[in-house]
Nucleic acid binder design. Structure first.
Length: 289
DNA sequence: CTTGTGCCCTGACCGC
DNA sequence: TGCGGTCAGGGCACAA
């Protein structure tokens, strides 16, 4: 469930609590998720930088290695006092040079990733061919150029991390709703003003969620132990059968738009291609300020 | 190229 | 109270 805003929330906490510290000793590393060679490469290294691109975190060490962290669905990473209770599914405990502090990685579902690799290996795996520009900093022009190249529907395209990095199922629905675009519209059919609305909605929704510390639906907890607040501002996700807050049409839910993934949208505000949009409403994009 | 399916995995939830 | 079934979904492999 962590998407860009949740990962950014975690990254900001790690910049405060982990950057500049050295991993002195790994107390425990579960072979279920963490390779021995990753542990070997990490021990003795200082974490210098926490980068984030989309849902991926890249922690650079002084030895020019990269600790790749993905939270998957249920991942949690953070720095805690070593006495802190060890919760189930804690896959890594590492002692830091800061007295009594421990770096921990927890992931019940094990959809996450925790790998230490060399810089060249990192470049091979996360080059521009494999991971698109971060959704927060992708320009409207770049977004349009990327959407133009494919006949796929806009929702799966937006969720394709090679196209733009950071948007998952929940935010895709919120973004398309605010942009008044039907999720099944072919990506290459979007006109300039469609893309401009899409870009504004994408940046607006993601930034608003970051300000709220992310969305906590089932499980997301920040590195500082706090839940997010954006779940209270979701306008379509999870609202199937309820009235649209703008036009009062019933919110639809279908798993058919993206294979196996639930998709929520408003048939009134997000008409399929061919139907004209209704009278534009100045306040359609709900302000999160 | 596209779409669909299934897998990984656990916990929350629902109906009986 | 308990038990089995279903669902959730990020990323990926694979088939059509």
């Amino acid at each position: 469930m962590p998407e860009l805003p949740e990962v950014e929330t975690v990254a900001r906490t790690l910049r405060r609590t982990l950057v500049g510290r050295r991993v002195e000793k790994v107390v425990r590393a579960s072979p279920l998720m963490i390779e021995r060679r990753s542990v070997r490469r990490l021990v003795g290294q200082r974490i210098d930088v926490v980068d984030r691109q989309g849902k991926w975190m890249f922690l650079r060490t002084e030895g020019n290695d990269v600790l790749v962290v993905h939270l998957g669905m249920t991942g949690w990473v953070g720095v805690v006092p070593k006495e802190t209770e060890v919760v189930p599914h804690t896959h890594l405990r590492a002692r830091l040079d800061e007295e009594g502090q421990e770096l921990r990685f927890v992931d019940p579902r094990r959809f996450g990733e925790w790998t230490v690799m060399s810089q060249p290996a990192w470049e091979g795996r996360f080059g521009p061919k494999n991971l698109g520009p971060d959704a927060l900093t992708c320009s409207p022009d770049e977004l349009q150029a990327r959407l133009k190249k494919t006949t796929r529907r806009i929702k799966p395209t937006l969720m394709d991390q090679r196209v733009v990095a950071g948007v998952g199922n929940i935010y895709a629905d919120e973004i398309l709703y605010q942009a008044r675009l039907a999720p099944m519209r072919p990506a290459h059919s979007l006109k300039r003003d469609d893309v401009e609305r899409l870009h504004a909605a994408m940046v607006g929704v993601l930034a608003a969620s970051i300000r709220d510390g992310g969305t906590t639906i089932q499980s997301f907890i920040g590195s500082d132990g706090r839940e997010g607040g954006f779940q209270e501002r979701l306008l379509v996700y999870g609202r199937a059968g309820r009235a649209c807050l703008v036009c009062e049409s019933l919110i639809q839910c279908s798993p058919a738009v993206v294979a196996g993934r639930s998709t929520y949208w408003c048939p009134g505000c997000q008409p399929a291609k061919g139907r004209r949009l209704g009278r534009p409403k100045a306040r359609h994009v709900v302000s999160h300020d």
